[in-house]
Every structure is written in structure tokens, then in C-alpha cells.
Design a binder for these strands. Structure first.
Length: 178
DNA sequence: GAGTGCGTATAAG
DNA sequence: CTTATACGCACTC
């Protein structure tokens, strides 16, 4: 059986839990908004009898790659860390589309639906986005509503806004440096 | 088959 | 600003 290694780390946006199996990171969630819900989610997604090992160093390495840097543009993250999210075919398709959104930019839920060739399935697409198990690495925070308002975020709209502000700052900092 | 959801559009209070 | 109605579709029970 496929054991899961998980660990905790502190990010600039609150503590996170990172989990990975032999193929790659399978979960990355913020714990600040609702720690109990997150732990429960992990249990139901992977099964409470799945063998696990704790390794905070692993989590901290991922955290550093994600937040400590100037490695933001043009998004080397997308290929540096292998991912292994668990979901339906439709969800995996949606999450795949999210990975194409460049650092520091935003798109709308409608844009994603259009890109998938399902313009009328916005609602379903939005639901799938809301079920993203790998925060930041699968940048669901870059998807906002068509009217310009933020839209929902599984880990709290505060963090969504903070992530977008951070990406914007990083991006501007890199632009001015030339 | 009924109920639900990180949306969108429009109408109305 | 907030609630209400409708559309549409993947998912869960």
C-alpha cells in the first residue's frame, strides 16, 4: 500500500499541512481557517487506515520553494514539484487548467469553463475549483468572479486576497528590477 | 430522482 | 448593499 508522508510548516499566510505519496504532493492545505475540517478532509479522502509518517522537514522544504522567493516568475513551481491530487476525471481536468494561470495574474470562473470547452458548466467548474486539495501549487486563488469580486475560497477569503496581494507585490518588485 | 454548490444575470426591495 | 428566480451541470446520497 501507498503510504503518505505528511508534515506541518509555517507559511507567511499561516500554518500549513503538506502531504505526499510516492508520486508527488497530494495535499496542501492552510490550517488557520478551520483546522479540524482540514484534518477530517484528509481522513475521508485518503482513508483513516492509510499508513502515514510525519516529516516536517519535507513540509518545510515545500513551503520554502513556494513562498521564499524570487522564484515567482514565470512560475517554475509548476514543474519543480510533482503533484498527485485525487479527484474525478472532471476535477482533474479543471485543476489541470488552473496550473496554466501565470503567477500574479487572475482569470474568472467563466474563463476556466470556456477554456475547457464547457461554457455552460461554470457552476460545476466553480465547485470543482472549490474542491482543490492542493492550495497554491494548484492556484485556485487566481480565479475570481466575472464582476471583479473575489469569489469564494476554501481556506478563507482573507487568505485568498493576501495571496493575490503578495503575488502582485512580487511581480511588481521583479518588474522594477530591470 | 432530489438536493447542493468558491457562478452569472437580472429584477426587486 | 441584500434577497429572489432562473439557468446549468457535476456530484453525492
Amino acid at each position: 500500500m501507498d503510504t503518505i508522508v505528511y508534515g506541518f510548516a509555517d507559511s507567511p499566510f499561516g500554518s500549513i499541512i503538506v502531504a505526499r505519496n510516492h508520486e508527488g504532493v497530494c495535499d496542501l492545505q492552510f490550517l488557520g481557517f478551520d483546522r479540524h475540517r482540514v484534518i477530517h478532509e484528509l481522513g475521508t479522502r485518503w482513508g483513516i487506515y492509510t499508513p502515514t509518517t510525519q516529516n516536517d522537514d519535507m513540509a518545510q522544504q515545500v513551503e520554502r520553494l513556494l513562498f521564499e522567493s524570487a522564484l515567482s516568475l514565470p512560475n517554475p513551481i509548476s514543474t519543480a514539484i510533482p503533484l498527485c491530487p485525487k479527484g474525478t476525471a472532471f476535477q482533474l481536468q479543471v485543476w489541470g487548467a488552473l496550473r496554466d494561470i501565470p503567477f500574479g495574474t487572475t482569470v474568472t470562473y467563466q474563463d476556466i469553463a470556456d477554456r475547457l470547452g464547457r461554457p455552460k458548466a461554470v457552476r460545476s467548474v466553480a465547485t470543482a475549483i472549490g474542491e482543490n486539495p492542493i492550495a497554491v501549487l494548484i492556484p485556485c486563488h487566481r480565479v475570481i468572479r466575472k464582476d471583479g469580486t473575489l469569489g469564494g475560497y476554501h481556506w478563507g477569503e482573507n487568505i485568498k486576497q493576501q495571496l493575490l496581494d503578495w503575488e502582485k507585490r512580487e511581480r511588481e518588485a521583479l518588474t522594477e528590477r530591470k
